[in-house]
Design a protein around this nucleic acid. Structure first.
Lengths: 204, 204
DNA sequence: GCATTTCCCGACCGATCGTTCAGTATTCTC
DNA sequence: GAGAATACTGAACGATCGGTCGGGAAATGC
């Protein structure tokens, strides 16, 4: 999305040790291990095997690395909303589709989404990320409202409250889900939908 | 719990501007606003109206402030497990009691629990807090297992997965719940139990 | 082989970090 | 009021922060 994930470009000078995407993978792992603020450029240099100044050859600075990372997560999440399953069909099915696909995005882009979910708003970059996240949450709330309006989700609970609980559950996956160990993303999505929609769907 | 919340002690010398508990309230608010690592002792001094060096008269250092704060949260959470409703009665009712009371603790001690949930393990203090959290989670998993063994919760989902989803939902409250605005803790607990237990309880 | 392009490094910058300390202010006890 | 006790301050500490810069290393194109 941001750049070709291939080793590097072909061209004139000395070949790079990292493509931008590869570099970002290493950096985001560091950010998540220690937290963005607690991770120094020295930490990043050590993790990449380069020196601090070499890192600055690839990116403008620490904040630019954060921007690249959270943008990747946000792009992946917003893409879910444009999928056919999110825009057509019964409202409750669209909602369930977005929930399931959000789980998969979280699993596929785990480090990037994890970083996004921890952004606090200290810098301009972080505040912009928070604003995009809020926009995403508004879209989700709209889906829940649609499902209630369609009479497919019980109406005796506040839709905004349901939205926060439902996607709070999804986001909490970032705290413990690890790809490859334990359950796969499909199983987790099944369990989550069973638990939450079991209580949300109108009995029939 | 940690100290008398009263203005200060009565005694010989100059009266203190803050009791330890009052100081901690201000500090934890700062930690949560910017994140622990991004909050400098200068920030804390400004928020309290004191100078940096005055803060050191009250506490040993920045890490000691964190330790006091997360201990308060952990003490409150563990206390829930010792309540009568958590130790007697049907297994599924004990589980529901712990969920509801955890929501209330999270609401009552919101800044402290929020801080606890964001601990990453950079220092010895943080790693000890993480270990206590893991012990708490183990106790929770035991409750879920009991409810499954008693045939009161559907057995076709992994108990550890259910535990993580269920209390992931509870913990996600820290991301948006604000006392005084929107719903009260009781309403949130009701909605959360309805949504999750609706899908968890065995149909009868 | 030589110019060009790209990548990378060592040394250093001013700012800020958490912390210390010697000293001053303010209060209580007697 | 003398003296003890507690609360607080200003200035400075070494360490580390994110970032800069000039130059050398390694590749391509001709």
């Amino acid at each position: 999305m941001t750049e070709r994930t291939a080793p590097a470009r072909r061209g004139r000078g000395r070949p790079a040790r990292y493509s931008l995407a590869e570099l970002l993978d290493v950096v985001v792992a560091e950010f998540n291990a220690r937290g963005y603020d607690a991770t120094s450029m020295e930490d990043i240099a050590r993790a990449t095997g380069m020196t601090k100044s070499s890192v600055y050859h690839h990116v403008a600075g620490k904040e630019a690395l954060l921007r690249l990372a959270v943008s990747r997560a946000l792009d992946a999440l917003f893409a879910v909303l444009d999928e056919p399953g999110s825009t057509s069909g019964d409202a409750v099915d669209r909602l369930e589709h977005v929930v399931r696909r959000s789980v998969h995005v979280l699993a596929d882009e785990l480090p990037y989404v994890t970083l996004l979910l921890r952004v606090r708003g200290n810098t301009a970059t972080e505040r912009e990320a928070l604003e995009r996240r809020r926009e995403f949450d508004r879209r989700l709330a709209g889906l829940v409202q649609d499902a209630i309006d369609a009479g497919q989700v019980r109406a005796d609970v506040d839709p905004r409250l349901v939205t926060r609980l439902l996607f709070g559950t999804v986001n909490s996956l970032a705290e413990w889900y690890r790809p490859g160990v334990g359950h796969g993303a499909d199983e987790v999505a099944d369990a989550l939908v069973t638990m939450t929609f079991g209580g949300l769907r109108r009995r029939h």
